[in-house]
Amino acid sequence: MTYDAEATRQRIFTAATAEFAAHGLAGARIDRIATAAQANKQAIYLYFGGKEKLFGAVVRAKLDEICHAVTLDPSTLPESVGLLYDWYHENPELLRLLLWEGLEVGDGPVEGERERKDSYRDHVDGLMAAGMSDARTAQDWLFTILGLVAWNFAVPQLRRLLLDEDDAERAIARRRAVVVDLARVLAERAQAAMR
Rank of each mutant, 00 (worst) to 15 (best):
A36E: 10
D73S: 11
K41T: 15
Q38F: 09
A39T: 08
N40Q: 14
H23L: 05
F55H: 13
L72M: 04
H68K: 11
A16Q: 00
G49I: 03
R29W: 10
H68S: 11
R29I: 10
D86P: 00
E79N: 09
P78V: 01
R32H: 14
W87K: 00
G56S: 05
L72I: 07
R60K: 13
A61E: 12
I33T: 02
L83D: 14
R60T: 12
R9W: 04
L77T: 01
K41L: 09
H68I: 05
E79L: 15
L84H: 04
L84F: 10
I12L: 01
A28W: 04
A22E: 11
A57F: 04
E52D: 15
D73K: 08
C67A: 14
E79S: 14
V58P: 02
H23E: 02
T35M: 12
T17R: 12
A15Y: 05
I33V: 09
G49R: 04
H23A: 08
R11D: 03
Q10L: 14
L46I: 14
T14Q: 11
A28R: 08
I30V: 12
I12M: 02
K41A: 10
Q10W: 07
T71E: 11
R9I: 02
I30F: 06
I44T: 00
T17V: 02
F48Y: 14
T35G: 12
T17D: 10
Q38H: 13
A28K: 09
I12S: 02
T35K: 12
F20P: 07
R29E: 15
G27T: 04
D31G: 12
A43E: 11
G82Y: 08
G49M: 03
I66S: 02
E19P: 01
R9Q: 09
E52H: 14
L77P: 00
F13S: 04
G50T: 03
I33C: 06
L54E: 03
T14F: 10
R11Q: 07
A16H: 07
G56M: 02
I33Q: 03
S80L: 06
V70Y: 01
R11C: 09
F13Q: 02
I30E: 07
E52Q: 13
V81Q: 05
